[in-house]
Nucleic acid binder design. Structure first.
Ligand code: ZN
Ligand code: ZN
Ligand code: ZN
Ligand code: ZN
Lengths: 131, 131
DNA sequence: TATAACAATGTTATAATATAACATATTAAA
DNA sequence: TTTAATATGTTATATTATAACATTGTTATA
């Protein structure tokens, strides 16, 4: 088992399954608590699975919340270009899939000499319901 | 002492002074350690000052690193539009000041009905030296 | 000047997030 | 079948952040 791409290990599957069912960002320890019945008993087991899932782009980390959410875009499995919409009222988080935005940001350059290969963007505001 | 805008309290000044001298992101506990000689002995004192400094835009939090850096832009003291360049090699972090970028992102809208009033963008890559 | 309201500080304890380190097991290659 | 690589299990601990409450200082105004 276990390859650089494609196959997920047992623990990775368990964690991903649980995150995908949630469709909202989940905290690592909440994941841990909920997969204990599946046999994952300690933080490193969850964090390892998360690290890998983030690495392959199946899961993204919402950095401002220390929370993890399943990828909803088929095209960002490389995990190098992520954008999220976050409501400050109800905490709803949505992955933004906007080709113009991602094209603009992927092509962004400044005169610093930096070669960018990844970005993460988090927008904050209020959703319809929370206004 | 202490107003909603303009004046900084004693602890806020101490923390800001230290961060400004660093010109690189600093961790909260590293700040704590270094301002103990100035009388700040416990985490809440540092975190309160940081919270306030972030709120008024004098300091930004680099979310992907849990680190704090002094604002280098005179125009983002409202702290609602931040962008950073982060080198994965040497960890150098630079605040991006790019009017076109900030205009583009501040004006960003999608069809979700979200009203955005803030964003944070982190670019990752390798700087000249690290390539 | 009292006294109330508020903001800032000091202090102790603890919560929440994440990793180090090491042993074992499983799988894939050579 | 030996080796290397990957994944897992396990315990302990490091790191980041906040709760809770007592005290002090400041401002406003009665
Ligand atoms: Zn995605
Ligand atoms: Zn909302
Ligand atoms: Zn700034
Ligand atoms: Zn570098």
């Amino acid at each position: 088992m276990a390859q650089k791409q494609g196959y997920l290990s047992k623990n990775q599957k368990i964690v991903l399954d649980y995150i995908e069912k949630a469709n909202q960002p989940l905290k690592a320890y909440s994941i841990l608590f909920n997969v204990q019945k599946k046999g994952l008993k300690a933080p490193p087991q969850v964090y390892r699975a998360l690290d890998r899932l983030v690495e392959i782009g199946k899961v993204h980390k919402i950095e401002s919340k220390n929370a993890f959410v399943a990828c909803k875009n088929s095209n960002c499995t490389i995990s190098n270009a992520t954008a999220f919409s976050i409501c400050d009222g109800c905490e709803k988080v949505t992955e933004i899939s906007n080709p113009k935005l991602s094209k603009y940001l992927s092509g962004f350059q400044d005169n610093s000499g930096m070669k960018y290969n990844k970005y993460n963007l988090e927008f904050f505001g209020l959703c319809k319901k929370c206004r």
